[in-house]
Nucleic acid binder design. Sequence first.
DNA 1: CGAGATGTTCGGCT
DNA 2: AAGCCGAACATCTC
Length: 268
Amino acid sequence: MPELAEVEYYRKQWDPGVGARVIRVALHAEKRVLRGVDSAALEHALTGSKLLGSEARAKQMLFRFGKATSPSAWVGIHLGMSGHLHAASGDYALQKHDHFVLFQKGRALVFNDPRQFGRIRFHAGSAPPEWWTNLPPDILSREFTCERLESVVTRRGGSPVKALLLMQDFFPGVGNWMADEILWRARLNPRRRGNRLESSEIGTLWRETREVCRIALKTIGAKLGDPPADWFFHVRWSKHGECPRCGLPIKTATIGSRTTRWCAKCQK
DNA sequence: CGAGATGTTCGGCT
DNA sequence: AAGCCGAACATCTC
């Protein structure tokens, strides 16, 4: 489920717990979501610490914890395919796929992920972890220039543009539905090879990539499942959707190893 | 019952 | 070496 804006939405779900102390940690240490994590150290570091705040970048979230005001423990969460966060009451009964839950006074902060493609990370120390500071430039940042996009599209130009948009090193936060939305708005056929794009098309791709991210964060980031009514988003889930622009039935195929939908008339 | 699901990583093949 | 592709991961829903 979660791409850029949905991740931002889920991050906020733990906001009610900011400033409050963690009384108890409940986790499934042996589960895939906690691979590579010293769960005893994680539990020990968080118990008695306050949740100080959080941020989201691309598909990742970072939660800061500390005994006082400066952070000493950091928890990263990636929601994978089926993960989500929510806040519940203090007497919350753990569900089957609740792999990481923080109990505070009168509250529970829950990470639930049935498929376990998500991931929890843990880092102790006063400085943020490398796996956070080394993330590639955000699409909406100043460093995400058209030149940067052009170099990617050229260098990895053997792949269809749909596959390029899914590469997190270059398009951090873009997932399957966002890639389809971007290509639909840019009127580009998802099968087009990067190295065959005209420079005007590259410009359009850059602009629409940023535009989809911007609007998605503004709408979905605030209220899940609420992108503009004229977006491709609303038709791409149904088996027999119609293009919001021209009304023709949309196509479906596997491109870049993922189910892809597009309008064969509008996207050339 | 089989297929597919909004993600990432790894192994193998150019 | 770099780039590209498909399989695997774990579980649920249609």
